[in-house]
Nucleic acid binder design. Structure first.
Length: 591
RNA sequence: GGUCCCGUAGUGUAGCGGUUUAACACGCUGCCCUGUCAAGGCAGAGAUCGCGGGUUCAAAUCCCGUCGGGACCGCCA
């Protein structure tokens, strides 16, 4: 072994001990006659001091040493002299007086500082990811990630779950996201696909009688990236037999509540038990099916008021079957015309045709794009409905319901952030239930399931499949955390006849259904138990728990926004003989 | 596919038509220094301002293009 102790573990209790340590030079302070080196390993820092009289060779050996060299040092632990303790350091009571130094490996000067948590261009960080990951903050992030996964494994083990691996090479599923395809050398012209999730496989494990399955599953989607989206990401994939949606939600809620309390005690849960909202309620109050409950500014319905309001824009929207809704952005009554215009531009990104406003400046003066069209009574009613106070800015959108919800919901979150209404240490979990089972896809002219093809409709709605699919609700439940979808799950269909009716509803011919999902349909015939599950994302959760800005901060080797690994430079062209073996010809059109 | 923002020593930033020999901090190199812990002191090296073109007497600075990076929209059942 290279070391008898870790750098972080030494305390005053070890005084007098002879130790051998190994690690990286975090910092070097050369006083000429006396040199200090902070030696770092994953477990912490300890100060090594050289005494030129007691150990001249070791002292001389420190001379050429620079940051990030790898050293092995032997010496004796001693309490630091009176008044020299460093309270910032876990090992700050003591130091190691070096007697022997071995340079295990020198290091060239790194492109950025390891010993300082400074902002560095992310491309540089990714190119030298092994150095970036050496920084204490990144080590803390990955340690937290480990603890989250360990907690989940331990918790689910105690709950009777089995962790079972499912294949990475599987079958393409053209529904949903784009697949990553993998050519088969043995079967020229045929392709595996990397799984977007182990959905079908975990359901088949239920048919196989495992009853409680989970997996820390890598999932792949060939779509454009975001700060919270990577082409490969990790989910806690779970499935349970003989359960109803309450059972799944209860288990997950208990597990995540316990996890947060144990792993991030400085974070606060907004509410226990977690609030449950129906999809309808979430949309009406927050304009979005993954509401951020950390602040108010809820949407207000003014549709009834708008009838006969005298403002043509509102009345026309109603006549076209639309709604009028508003939010009250408290404290923004002093916004300038230019600032309000910027909000209007923001809302227009989400298809709102405009943004009507009524501002009450801190001086009590009213400015509005439309109040001149209103009678004094109507204006008074409006202000009462929105509890308008001096200094408030009321923002209105009139349009088709989906546009009103989207524009105001986005505006609400935009303003919540801009106004600093969000407590960074708050974790607002909630459940959203009673989703519409399917919605009509205008472009494709067919019904599209709002989750996936295997979701069970609410039992009391099943008979609407043929008559009124738009009114059906699904058994889907989404776990929402701080305004993002943290997990989606549902009870699945275990009746093959019902599964066929759903395939028919979404326009899959018997032939296509058999070709793509024949194995699923067949499996359901062989005594499939009632079952359901959920799949919480791990990356986003760890990101939020770590207080990081992007999931790239909690993934060891992420891709950049162009889906490229800049360290290894992947993807890269395949060599001619590889392609030949796969019977693949590359045909890149001219740019 | 679209919109927006950013590219200046190794890193982070300043400079935004001429007063600049492109500044500052950290880092780096050398020398001095026996109690520092973001050690200190002194000296020094390091940038054709992403790239190409244009405007101008004059471009890091303005314009166009291009490349690279990021945020967002679309997309992500």
């Amino acid at each position: 072994m290279y070391k008898t102790h870790t750098c972080g573990q030494l305390t005053a209790a070890d005084a007098g001990q002879s130790v051998t340590l190994a690690g990286w030079v975090h910092r070097r302070r050369d006083h000429g006659g006396l040199t200090f080196i902070d030696l770092r390993d994953r477990f912490g820092l300890v100060q090594i001091v050289s005494d030129p009289e007691a150990a001249p060779e070791a002292h001389a050996a420190f001379e050429p040493v620079r940051n990030e060299w790898v050293l092995q040092v032997s010496g004796v632990v001693r309490p630091r002299p009176e008044g020299m303790a460093n309270p910032e350091l876990a090992s700050g009571e003591i130091e190691v007086v070096v007697s022997e130094v071995k340079v295990l490996n020198p290091a060239v000067t790194p492109p950025f500082l390891i010993n300082k948590d400074e902002d560095v261009d992310e491309n540089t960080r990714l190119k030298y990811r092994y150095l970036d990951l050496r920084r204490p903050r990144m080590q803390a992030n990955l340690e937290l990630r480990h603890k989250v996964v360990k907690f989940i494994r331990d918790y689910l083990d105690k709950e009777g779950f089995l962790e079972i691996e499912t294949p990475i090479l599987f079958k393409t599923t053209p529904e949903g996201a784009r697949d990553y395809l993998v050519p088969s050398r043995v079967h020229p012209g045929e392709f595996y696909a990397l799984p977007q999730s182990p959905q079908q496989l975990k359901q088949l494990l239920m048919v196989a009688g495992y009853e409680r399955y989970f997996q820390i599953a890598r999932c792949f989607r060939d779509e454009d990236l975001r700060g919270d989206r990577q082409p490969e990401f990790t989910q806690l994939d779970m499935e349970m037999s003989f359960v109803e949606r309450e059972d799944v939600m209860d288990l997950v809620e208990r597990m995540y509540t316990a996890m947060v309390k144990q792993l991030v005690p400085h974070k606060r849960l907004l509410a226990e038990p977690w609030p449950r909202l129906t999809y309808k309620e979430a949309m009406q109050r927050f304009g979005k099916d993954a509401p951020d409950l950390r602040f108010g500014m809820e949407l207000q319905d003014l549709t009834a008021w708008a009838a006969g309001s005298g403002f043509k824009v509102f009345e026309d929207a109603l006549a076209a079957g639309g709604h009028v809704r508003a939010i009250n952005a408290r404290g923004l009554g002093g916004y300038s015309r230019k600032e309000i215009d910027a909000l209007t531009e923001f809302a227009k990104q989400f298809k709102a045709k405009g943004l009507a406003y009524l501002a009450i400046t801190p001086e009590g003066e009213e400015r509005s794009s439309f109040s001149k069209f209103l009678s004094p009574e109507k204006l008074a009613e409006l202000k009462t409905a929105l509890d308008a106070q001096t200094g408030d800015l009321l923002l209105f959108v009139a349009d088709k319901p989906e546009v009103v919800f989207d524009a105001l919901g986005r505006l609400r979150e935009h303003l919540g952030e801009a106004l600093n209404l969000i407590d960074p240490d708050l974790l607002a979990f909630c459940w959203v239930i009673d989703f519409p089972f399917a919605f009509w896809d205008e472009e494709e002219q067919r019904w599209e399931p709002s989750q996936h093809l295997f979701t069970l409709p609410m039992p009391e709605d099943i008979d609407l499949i043929e008559s009124d699919p738009g009114s059906m609700r699904g058994t889907q439940y989404d776990m929402v955390l701080n305004g993002t979808e943290a997990a989606g799950g549902s009870i699945r269909i275990h009746d093959p006849a019902l599964q066929k009716r759903i395939f028919k509803l979404i326009g899959l011919s018997d032939e296509v259904a058999r070709e793509r999902f024949g194995h699923m349909l067949e499996a359901l015939e062989f005594g499939a138990p009632p079952h359901g599950g959920i799949a919480p994302g791990i990356d986003r959760l760890v990101m939020l728990l770590a207080g990081a800005e992007s999931i790239r901060e909690v993934i060891a080797f992420p891709k950049n926004q162009a889906a490229r690994d800049v360290m290894a430079d992947a993807p890269s062209p395949a060599e001619g003989h590889q392609l030949k073996e796969l019977h693949i010809k590359v045909d890149i059109g001219k740019k």
